[in-house]
Design a protein around this nucleic acid. Structure first.
Length: 498
RNA sequence: GGCGCUGGAGCCUGAUGGUAAGGCGACUGCCUGCAAAGCAGUUUUAAGUGGGUUCGAUUCCCACCGGCGUCUCCA
């Protein structure tokens, strides 16, 4: 099957070929762990997950690594991120968002990072992020790789790509790497120093070139610091990804590197400069694939706008007023193309809930009809072939979903076959539980005691032909988030997914 | 200003040089005590603007306009 991805490096769709036959090595830039991850973060992460799962569907063995950034990097002119996190944690403890006892000492950055790392893994797991669910060893933490970063910096100095400035700071010399700017288009002559308004002139004076970026900063006072040949201090932001990608994936050139579009410059540009500067190879990753940003109800998501949602905000019902099943959020976040700005809306969420419910019900129906039988199916199956072919076209998810919708409506006279097709599609979509997947099925269509009590009361009322009472109970159940169906003699209720 | 992406019905969107497909929603009917769900049907003047190529352009090309990202915190 011919697979195309849009490569940010060349600004065009390219046919995908892996370096090693049948194996794909991919790296995704992960979260910084000094706050809960938001739905925008997850849109980008889940796009990487979708890509991974698609590649597996078509037969690749995928080695997917995602880092956890737990080093508090210095932000010029602002407080250190970990220090900022410390004060936020103190506030969150007061408000109860961070439970009592979860972080004993908010002034200990390791405890903060550890807490938010666990929270992230928990969210990612619920959302069916395969690496978090099944390969936690492929999620390295930056603080465990300081030694490797120091080695890479030493090698970059040896090879003439880095220098120690007069203030003791180690910088990467962009002029030593003519390819700098190939990914972002921000070549050295075009870079307008400080056009983004984030650079202070002060820190520029020690550099050989304004675009030179930091590799190691000696700083005794920094909240997280390590010994190094250049004094006690901390590493630059970009070096961790170069080091962890090489160490975890075991080679200098990898197949795919993903991330949010904002990471193209400077982060990914700098990663390329570091990795290639160190290895001498012409490429760090052969395919750079970036996800567009997410909007909320047509606006940019921002804390000041009040439309800033973490994944757990959505789960807990802070967006819709009702709890949302993680599978619904996952589906909502992956159902639009990764290179378009998706618009996250309440309506979209309820739409997704309907689709997810429909799929789950179809599977339950197929399962009971199949009576334990399961067919073997592969991509020679026309439905799956159409599904995979759509995704092979730069992850055309809408096309794949169109295939799926058509298939749902089609004839399912061979339930064992349909079940197998369903599971194959779901191995990519991961919106409902199949053996060992990350999404819990605890509340898929079930009901709790309170709902059950109301249901029984309703049945009794109906036997007594007390329709007023029956209707009242029905309204209550609906308000409590149930779908209520009244049959000839029975009443069934189902917890809605969103 | 540079570089890059993007523009379709109420919403999300597929394919496509020749009738623009599907999903959601909405509406109607069957069903129901009434609903819901399900099934059937309806939702027919939907492609930012202006040029160009063409017998014919939503599709290819150019310009413009709008939206978005980036230009040293960032998914």
């Amino acid at each position: 099957m011919k697979i195309n991805f849009y490569n940010s490096l060349t600004n065009q769709q390219e046919e995908f070929k892996s370096i090693q036959d049948g194996v794909v090595k991919m790296y995704s830039c992960g979260p910084t762990v000094y706050d809960f991850a938001h739905i925008g973060n997850f849109r980008s992460f889940l796009f990487g997950d979708l890509m991974r799962r698609f590649l597996e569907l078509v037969g690749y063995e995928v080695q997917h690594v995602m880092n956890i950034t737990d080093v508090g990097h210095m932000v010029e002119g602002e407080a250190d991120k970990m220090l900022a996190a410390a004060s936020r944690v103190k506030e969150n403890k007061k408000s109860g968002r961070v439970p009592e006892g979860a972080i004993e000492d908010p002034n200990d950055p390791y405890q903060i990072a550890d807490y938010y790392t666990k929270a992230f893994l928990d969210d990612a797991n619920k959302l069916g992020y395969k690496v978090a669910a099944e390969y936690p060893q492929s999620m390295p933490r930056a603080t465990d790789y300081i030694e490797g970063m120091i080695k890479m910096i030493e090698r970059l100095i040896e090879r003439g790509h880095a220098y120690v400035a007069s203030d003791g700071v180690v910088y990467y010399s962009v002029e030593s790497f003519p390819e700098y700017g190939n990914l972002s288009g921000n070549t050295m002559d075009k870079l307008q120093s400080g056009a983004g308004g984030r650079v202070s002139d002060q820190n520029q004076s020690m550099k050989k070139h304004p675009a030179d970026f930091l590799l190691w900063k000696p700083d005794q006072k920094h909240i997280m610091k390590w010994e190094s040949p250049w004094g006690v201090g901390y590493p630059g932001w970009h070096i961790e990804c170069s080091v962890m990608a090489a160490e975890k994936l075991g080679q200098d050139v990898i197949d795919i590197h993903t991330g949010g579009e904002d990471l193209i410059f400077p982060h990914h540009e700098c990663e390329i400069a570091q990795s290639c500067g160190c290895s001498g190879e012409s490429h760090f990753a052969n395919y750079w694939v970036h996800a567009r940003f997410l909007f909320v109800e047509g606006d940019k998501m921002s804390k000041s706008q009040g439309n800033f949602y973490t994944a757990r905000d959505v789960f807990e019902g802070k967006v819709t007023g009702k709890p949302v099943h993680p599978a619904v959020l996952r589906f909502e976040l992956i159902k639009s193309h990764y290179r378009s700005n998706m618009n996250f809306t309440k309506k979209g969420l309820t739409d997704s809930a309907n689709t997810v419910m429909k799929l789950i019900e179809l599977r339950q129906e197929l399962e009971s009809k199949a009576e334990g039988k399961m067919a073997e199916v592969d991509l020679s199956n026309p439905v799956l072939n159409d599904f995979a072919t759509a995704l092979a076209d730069d992850l055309n998810i809408a096309g794949a979903l169109a295939v799926m919708h058509t298939w749902i409506k089609s004839d399912h006279s061979d339930p064992a076959l349909s079940l197998a097709i369903w599971d194959k599609m779901n191995s990519v979509l991961a919106i409902a539980p199949i053996g060992g997947e990350g999404v819990s099925d605890a509340d898929d269509g079930g009901s709790d005691d309170e709902g059950e009590a109301m249901r029984l009361e309703m049945v009794a009322a109906r036997e007594a032909k007390d329709y007023a009472k029956s209707d009242e109970l029905r309204d209550k159940l609906i308000a409590a988030g149930y779908d209520v169906q009244i049959g000839k003699t029975e009443v069934t209720i189902k917890k809605k997914l969103a």
